[in-house]
């Protein structure tokens, strides 16, 4: 039992959190990718840009960047899911064997 790092509650919490994270962050990534207007407010924009072309370029790159960031974060949650799933399984098994 070297690999048991967290207890049954923490691993369950991680499991639920990562499932939620994967679903929501993947969807948010998709929405950033298709340039959803509702998410415009969250983009990192420079308030001093007044040129229209520059502004549009910045928005475009912001959307793409955020889409990628969301998917990467979703991948990180996949890793979390695997780890906490493994922990959960170990915890369950150890409680059964006891």
């Amino acid at each position: 039992m070297v690999f048991v790092l967290c207890g049954p509650k923490l691993s369950l919490c991680g499991l639920i959190l990562s499932v939620w994270g994967i679903i929501q962050l993947t969807l948010m990534g998709v929405f950033y990718y298709i340039r959803a207007v509702a998410l415009l407010e969250d983009l990192p924009l420079d308030p001093n840009v007044h040129e229209l072309d520059l502004f549009i370029g910045e928005v475009e790159s912001g959307y793409t960047q955020n889409a990628h960031n969301c998917w990467i974060a979703a991948l990180l949650y996949v890793i979390t899911l695997v780890i906490s799933g493994h922990q959960f399984w170990m915890n369950n098994r150890s409680s059964v064997s006891m």
């Binding site: 959190l17 939620w20 994270g21 990192p44 912001g62 960047q65 960031n69 990467i72 974060a73 990180l76």
Partner: peptide, 24 residues
Amino acid sequence: LKFGLQDHGYVGAVKLYVAFCFWA
């Protein structure tokens, strides 16, 4: 959550990972 969405680089992904956890 916005804290994780304000970056130009890929560091934002890690920030987003942490921010999402707290937000959730």
